[in-house]
């Protein structure tokens, strides 16, 4: 979503994005002329008249599980957004019985919070697991 019109979105997809992504952008490119939606999400920069790089992960109940907002010159890490969605999906599927520690990736160790784990995380989770 950006402050551009749907017509400009079409031109951008036709003339540039479709040369990067085969068949063009598959998802809806939304238009927020005037920044009304960006304003309620707190990411519209009224002085510059543009939306900053806000990224919101919304679960199947419509609840915001996470967000990230960065200024325009720095691009996002798409893999990190996907990793977070995978982690939230795992937690949701476990009905909250599992949690994903720092550095978690699909297939790696999860934690089962409960009385037995209090004070014992150090036995199962090592700090280097946050970095690989």
């Amino acid at each position: 979503m950006s402050i551009d019109s749907v017509f400009v979105h079409k031109m951008w997809d036709d003339h540039e994005l479709s040369k990067m992504v085969k068949s063009g952008v598959p998802f809806p490119m939304m238009s927020d002329v005037g920044g009304k939606v960006g304003t309620i999400y707190g990411i519209y920069d009224d002085d510059a008249g543009v939306e900053t790089r806000g990224r919101f992960i919304i679960d199947p109940d419509g609840v915001v599980q996470g967000y990230e907002v960065i200024t325009p010159p720095v691009g996002r890490n798409v893999n990190e957004a996907i990793r977070q969605i995978q982690a939230f999906q795992l937690v949701r599927n476990s009905k909250g019985t599992e949690a994903t520690p720092s550095g978690w990736q699909p297939g790696k160790l999860t934690l089962n919070p409960g009385p037995d784990l209090v004070g014992n995380v150090w036995k199962v989770w090592k700090t280097d697991m946050a970095f690989d």
Partner: peptide, 26 residues
């Protein structure tokens, strides 16, 4: 919104039941 050759109206609540990544950009 523009999506694959069509102009459509998107409502966030139409995506209830799915995971959504909502991205804003300049």
């Amino acid at each position: 919104a523009y999506q694959k050759g069509k102009f459509i109206n998107v409502k966030l609540s139409d995506y209830l039941g799915k995971w959504v990544a909502l991205c804003f950009y300049p």
